[in-house]
Write a protein that binds this DNA or RNA. Structure first.
Lengths: 227, 227
DNA sequence: TATAAGTTCGTTGTATACAAAGCAAGCATG
DNA sequence: CATGCTTGCTTTGTATACAACGAACTTATA
């Protein structure tokens, strides 16, 4: 339970509940605890350096977001992910994310398309023959790419649902070992989506996005069974 | 602020946070406060008969569900609904609900189909020439009809998202004045969905469901502009 | 008068004390 | 030996006291 507490300088400006939330959240996403672990309020509270009150608030929020499961009088357990759960989640994600690009196709502007292209270049730049791939950086660019599309959909609640659905299985990203050809295909999808958006062809963009998500599902399924 | 507190017999078995949650929730759904009202924690607490702690928990939950909006250090305000919000919500609902019946088509059993038919009959029985329609009862049956479909989708997270999305604008149900022909059409939709499910034709069921939701949107839009 | 700093009060945020629920070990009893 | 009860401990749930923040009002100053 060491290392959860961040430097006072960072936490100073924020509310304790927010600090607790992000501390626990990053802990879960970095697999500090394994799936099914019981998260004790007092333990978390002293590790983070706040009282139980904001910790409880954080746990409720994480429960609503699907990262932990709360049982009355028994507390919180870290969710673990079976193949069935991933099927549910990726099914929803394919649906929502393709809907988002379909909406985006008729609303997205030149600036955002330019930004998408820049991100494509950056991501492709990370795939160099014979070199190890910086997955961390890749994730950042990829998240930004998809985030721009959520925004461009113009539907705030859709954006919110998507962020939630996408985040759930993110614990497995650590274990997801993208092969080079998976990544190449991913890059091609991105490029094709941008092209479809530029052509204002929502159906095309949506179709590619569905493929994109379902291809990602396969990688995560491997991660789930092997972790 | 009277009348929020229920009889002790009812509240006795439940946790205070749960009591607070459903008290505030039903208050909002019954338009006890108008959109934009500031909900004060102490006020709610004494009205319900619990302390601020469970009230705060309830407000966070209602915030996550989209019924209130929480601003740090300023508290909770009851959400109000403009045409734009309804467009977002019904767009999502059409998407998710049609996906649900599409999944349900290949999984639903005879028992559930029989139950759907029974509900159709009950609802149709409420529409009698020259008599006032019992909208309260209609809502109960209608919710149960759709609930069965959510379950039959076999996707727990989809069910959860749908419940959330459907509940958001439910404040307006009070003001939604369904004309007789709106209801007749609704009944026809229900019947057609059941038939499509029985034929295991997911695409058909999904298509009718999309129409069903979008027709509902129009009624709610009227309610939003007139309330 | 207009503006800015100071003040007060109401409300939310956090810590802490206490109540109640769950669980396990030990004991009694059939 | 198995079953059920008791007891003690751990953990969560709730109430309450206090701290911190924000908004409106007051006062000082140009």
């Amino acid at each position: 339970m060491q290392g959860l507490k961040k430097k006072t300088a960072e936490t100073g400006g924020q509310r304790a509940a927010e600090v607790a939330y992000s501390a626990i959240r990053t802990g879960i996403l970095n697999s500090r605890w394994k799936g099914g672990s019981h998260l004790r309020e007092q333990e978390l509270a002293s590790a983070i350096g706040v009282s139980r009150t904001p910790v409880r608030e954080a746990l409720r929020r994480l429960n609503a977001e699907g990262l932990v499961t709360l049982v009355p009088n028994l507390g919180a357990r870290v969710n673990d992910w079976k193949a069935h759960d991933l099927d549910e989640i990726f099914g929803l994600r394919a649906l929502l994310e393709s809907y988002a690009v379909e909406l985006a196709a008729s609303r997205i502007g030149e600036d955002e398309i330019a930004e998408l292209k820049r991100l494509c270049e950056k991501m492709e730049g990370l795939i160099v023959e014979g070199q190890r791939i910086d997955h961390q950086r890749m994730s950042v660019y990829n998240d930004r790419f998809h985030g721009i599309l959520y925004e461009a959909s113009g539907n705030g609640r859709l954006r919110q649902l998507l962020k939630q659905v996408v985040e759930m299985p993110l614990v497995l990203r650590t274990f997801a070992r993208y092969e080079r050809r998976d990544l190449m295909r991913s890059m091609n999808h991105h490029r094709e989506i941008v092209e479809a958006l530029q052509a204002k062809d929502g159906a095309w963009a949506a179709s590619v996005m569905r493929s994109h998500v379902r291809a990602g599902r396969a990688v995560f399924l491997d991660a789930a069974t092997s972790s």
